[in-house]
Amino acid sequence: MNGRTKVALGVAALLAVVLALLWYRDVSRPGSLTLEFRARSDGGPLVLNEFAYDNPGGAGRVKVRDFQFFVSNVRLGGAAGQFVEPDSYHLLRFDNAERAFTIQLTGVPRLEYDYLEFLVGVDADANASIRAVGDLDPNGRMAWNWEVGYKFVLFEGGLLVDDVQIPLVYHVGFDASARRVRFDLGTLFADAPDERRMFDVDVMRLFDGETPIDMQALSNVKFDRDDARRIASNFSRLIEYMPPAS
């Protein structure tokens, strides 16, 4: 072998290494998962500030003026491994033109996951703290006060019955109200490192559980634990996964 052949071989080896590393970088590059939540009720995008919905358990029409809620501790889990979003506290709100809110998970290892899981509400540790983590803000609208913690779900609006407007105030909190929900998202990252999955959020389902709630009889929920439990029992119905059309 003369010197020139050796240099050529060296360059070839180098190219091989470069290509291998590039390939490795691509498959090992973490993925991103965008969770898009769209507020929809009655088959259409959420209507705000109008008496647009029926009272599920009684008479009158319902106006949604403000609707926000916390989602926390978002993670992907399965036999192959899990991904836990750091500082995972999201305040979902829909008072934008799209009536949508997105959570973007980045740096997600591209493994096979069995489920996506999160809490509708705030976990007990964070609920007892005044640290501002993620969207948690002790000076925010969702804070009750430092002795009580956060509202998990906030719904404010009105009910129109017989020409009388009744204010509606649902501030649902307390540790016991938080609900863990799980969704099977199927295979992620099979074709691409960036995935987007859609969810529908129907605020009226908070009142339309096994026994529909008459919003006139229960026009506000704040600190009464039984009332909070009644609404919280419907937290798990609030969000529905809409699998991509295949």
Partner: peptide, 23 residues
């Protein structure tokens, strides 16, 4: 020549590794 060849390979690999680490 052999030494020069080896050196060339080592230098190329080292610089490639450096560039990749940066990348």
């Amino acid at each position: 020549d052999a030494r020069r060849g080896r050196t060339a390979v080592v230098v190329s690999l080292a610089s490639a590794a450096f560039a990749l680490t940066g990348y």
